[in-house]
Structure formats: structure tokens, C-alpha cells
Design a protein around this nucleic acid. Structure first.
Lengths: 197, 197
DNA sequence: GCAATCTGCGCACGACCGTGCTTTTCTATA
DNA sequence: TATAGAAAAGCACGGTCGTGCGCAGATTGC
């Protein structure tokens, strides 16, 4: 890895953090260069356009997410423990300063067609698929009902995270954390097989 | 109401629609003027700054929300019917082109201190309080358990709406609507008194 | 250790931003 | 209908945005 890639990655690291706070369009090349102690054109040279920069930021964020949330969760035992681990790590990921960058980006770009949006859609779809897949391991393990709907669970799961995200970030209400966990427990309870009597 | 107020309100009407799509900062005075068939300075004259414009947009959006969602819902019978009516109307409100403007604004400003954010916080808090209050009528009516937590319900309620918002707007998955309704039913079921056996 | 390539800087550009000031056009009232 | 006042336009400003070009210095492969 040459010097070029080195600084490019350093820039992306910072950029992801900035994107958490101000989003992908709020982010400006000038201010990013300042933070990275680079000239505007010096930084710009590494990416050929702002859109390319935004795409690389998304890619970088995804890598980070996989390292911090997805991959470790998949190492937990199949079924409910894995679902729990996923939820737990997701909350921690969303608790980093600025919150989950995908949430910010999704709200920004859901009405702006283009390559960034396309990429975002792909990532979001993968996220949902992952939740559903992890949930399915719980069905085959007998932790959850046979007739439970993994896609329904995925959407509900994400809703719990989003509600906590909004409540904590905007209202600053720390009790949102406990409520999210409580909502998650309710989700699991509803998914479990009804005890045969 | 003189001519001034007339056009000011017409501008705000359009501005709320634009804000749904691009948010409060994405919105620009120039493009807004073009849409309203006004000169940039002509439009600007009605608001003394962009921040003032953003604040008035929020106020206008809130008025619209109250007309379309809050007030009509409060006319439904106390308890579960009222909760249902609230949910139903909320979904319809979020289904307008661009989605709920508060969701967009909240994500934009949750990290940008200032008057806009302050206003947003107030509105969001009122929203949550309203949900909780409506839910409480269900407790006193005996539709919901005595020990149910209205604040928990409010956060869960909002989570269902947010998850649908994201899934439909970004992924374009129309099944999200049905899943949201299903999640809402589960919320209600969990809140009902356990049948005495 | 030299040469070639790569990295970063300085500078400038055109576009658009929010915002004022001045002038023209419209509106409402006496 | 004349006129005071409101509404809108015209124009210009300083600033910042993304982007391009040419050059100096650093890095790297032989």
C-alpha cells in the first residue's frame, strides 16, 4: 500500500465520522480537507468527483459496519443468541458519535436518484436480508415459530433501532435505550413457539 | 389577510412539499422562488433570513399535521379506536410524496444546534406526548393493561412508522405497508389485558 | 543514486448560495 | 381617483461550493 492509499484511507476514516453528523451532502470537500490537514485540491485528487467520494465513503462505512456488527454477530451460536448479538452490536454501532451513517444517508437520498442512492439501496437491502437470514437460523434451531415471517421480523427489528436512534439523538432521552431493549424482548417473545399446554 | 400574507402562505405550502423531499437545508431560496414564480429577493423579503424561513416551514408543517392527523384522530372514540385512527392517519400523512417532513428534518438537524433544532425538539416531544396521551385513554377505558407503559408504546408506535418510512421510501418495497400494520396489531395485542382464564 | 512516477499545493474558474439596497409596480384606502 | 404604503423586481456583494490545471517536492523502482 503506497502513500496514496494510506492518506486516502485516513481521509475516508474521518469522512465516515463526519458523514454521521452532517450526512453525505452536508459534507464539503473544503472542510474535509481542513480536518485532514490537506489542501482542497490535494484531497480532491484522491477522488475524481464528489460523487465518487460519497460512494467511497459508503463503501468504507459498510466495511466498518461489517467489522463491528455483522461479522462478529455471525460468530455467535445460531438462533436466538445470534439475533441478540446482532441487536446488541447494532445498538453500539448506532451509539457512536453521530449515529449510524446509513440512517442519515438514507433519509437524505431517498428522493435523489443517482449512483449514491443506488448504492444505498443495495446496502440497505443487504442489511435487511442479513437480519432475516439470522432470524431464520432461529427458526431452524427451534427457537422461533415455524410460521414466523423473517421479513416481518427484519422490519420490526430495524424499527426498534430507528425509534431509539431518533429518540436519543433528537430528544436526548436516554431512557430510549431501555425501551428499545424492552421492545426487542417483546419481539422475541412474540416470535417464540407458543408453549404446548 | 392582505396580499402579502397570501403569497407568504402559498410559498410555505410549496416549501413544505419541497422540504419533504430535500429537507430544510437542501431547500434553497433560489429554487423555491423559481417554483413560486417569484424573484429571489421578492421571496426573500417575506422572511428575513433563511433560518426564519425554515422555522416558518416547520410551523406550517405542524399546522398541516394537526389538521390531517392529530385533530381528526382526537375525534375518534377514546381508547383503542382513537389509537387506531391516529396510526391510520399517520401512515397516510407519511405516504404523501416525500414522506413526513419531520423525519427528514430530524435526521438533518439532530447534530446541528440552533433555533431550528430547538423547534424540532419541541415538536417531536409534543408528538410523543400525544401518542402517549392517546394511549392512556385506552388504559382508562380498560382496553389496555393497567401496567402498560405509555412512553414505551409511543416509542414503539413511532418505530413502526419509521421502519415503514425507510423501507418504502428507499427500497420501494410496498409490502412494508402491510408489515407495519401487522406490527401495529402486535403492539396492540401485547398491550391488551391478559384474558382472565 | 537516478529517473520516473506519484502526491500534494497554489491558484483560478464559473456557478450558486444567502443577503442587502434601490427602484419599479401593484394594492388598498380616503 | 389620487396617493401612501406594501410587494416584488433588479442588481450587486462577498463567500463557498465543486472542479481543473500546472508545478514543486516526495516517493519509489531500477
Amino acid at each position: 500500500m503506497g502513500k496514496g492509499d494510506e492518506t486516502r484511507i485516513a481521509v475516508l476514516d474521518q469522512a465516515v465520522d463526519v458523514a454521521r453528523r452532517v450526512g453525505l451532502s452536508g459534507l464539503t470537500i473544503g472542510s474535509l480537507a481542513e480536518q485532514a490537514q490537506l489542501s482542497k485540491s490535494g484531497l480532491f485528487g484522491h477522488f475524481r468527483s464528489k460523487e465518487a467520494l460519497q460512494l467511497q465513503i459508503l463503501e468504507h462505512a459498510r466495511t466498518r459496519f461489517e467489522e463491528a456488527v455483522a461479522r462478529p454477530a455471525l460468530r455467535a451460536p445460531r438462533g436466538e443468541p445470534r439475533v441478540r448479538e446482532l441487536f446488541d452490536r447494532w445498538l453500539r454501532w448506532d451509539s457512536l458519535p453521530g449515529g449510524c451513517p446509513f440512517v442519515a444517508a438514507a433519509t437524505e437520498f431517498d428522493d435523489q436518484p443517482g449512483a449514491v442512492r443506488d448504492r444505498l439501496v443495495r446496502d440497505q437491502r443487504d442489511l435487511f436480508d442479513m437480519i432475516a437470514t439470522v432470524f431464520r437460523t432461529g427458526i431452524t434451531e427451534g427457537h422461533f415459530r415455524e410460521d414466523a415471517d423473517p421479513d416481518q421480523f427484519a422490519q420490526d427489528f430495524y424499527g426498534v433501532i430507528l425509534a431509539r436512534h431518533h429518540t436519543i439523538r433528537l430528544l436526548g432521552d436516554q431512557r430510549a435505550e431501555a425501551r428499545a431493549r424492552s421492545a426487542f424482548e417483546a419481539l422475541l417473545t412474540n416470535a417464540r413457539p407458543t408453549p404446548s399446554r
